[in-house]
């Protein structure tokens, strides 16, 4: 595979960093080189939060993303800040609440991520895993096996939430398929 650079952005507390860890973890379990970094403010909740994952067959030196192939933005603020970092033929995944600037050259998937979390799962806590499902569906086939993704989710979320989170992952895949 070619180097794949994925940026997940949202607001602190939405769990984008955990989603990135799960994805990078699955990458390593698959036998790829994977690196995960993040940047966040000093607040525990609120504020901008950004996590990055690079997957590659080759050694990864510079650990940050320069041009993202896939960008997830769960909030308007995150979209405004990061949409210019997406490569021209990249993939943008945004929550339906985000207003687009209208001059996107990349593929855009506007998905009801936050609403689905609330309506189907009665909690915003799974928005990150729904997003992860959408990213997984759109990042291309054959990069990471689905059972490895499920195992990675299972290992990294609290034990009593495993079912809810794996359901949320499936829901994200469905949303992305449209």
């Amino acid at each position: 595979m070619k180097k794949l650079e994925i940026r997940l952005s949202g607001s602190g507390g939405q769990g984008v960093i955990l989603a990135a860890i799960i994805l990078a973890n699955a990458g390593v379990e698959q036998g790829l080189n994977a690196i995960q970094t993040q940047s966040y403010g000093p607040e525990a909740r609120g504020g901008a939060s950004k996590a990055e994952v690079i997957l590659s067959n080759d050694e990864i030196n510079y650990p940050k993303i320069t041009r993202a192939n896939i960008l997830l933005s769960l909030t308007q603020k995150a979209y405004d800040k990061y949409n210019s970092s997406l490569e021209t033929n990249g993939i943008l995944i945004v929550d339906e609440s985000v207003k687009l600037s209208g001059d996107e050259t990349f593929k855009v998937y506007t998905l009801p991520i936050l609403r689905t979390a609330q309506e189907k799962f009665e909690t915003q806590l799974v928005a990150n895993i729904i997003s992860l499902g959408a990213i997984y569906e759109l990042m291309g086939e054959g990069i990471i096996d689905k059972d490895i993704m499920i195992r990675s989710i299972t290992e990294r979320v609290p034990a009593h939430t495993v079912q809810k989170n794996t359901d949320a992952f499936e829901e994200g895949i469905k949303l992305a398929r449209g």
């Binding site: 860890i21 990078a24 390593v28 970094t37 993040q38 650990p63």
Partner: peptide, 9 residues
Amino acid sequence: ETVGHMREK
């Protein structure tokens, strides 16, 4: 911070 917080294999 870069090395302390990043995750890799």
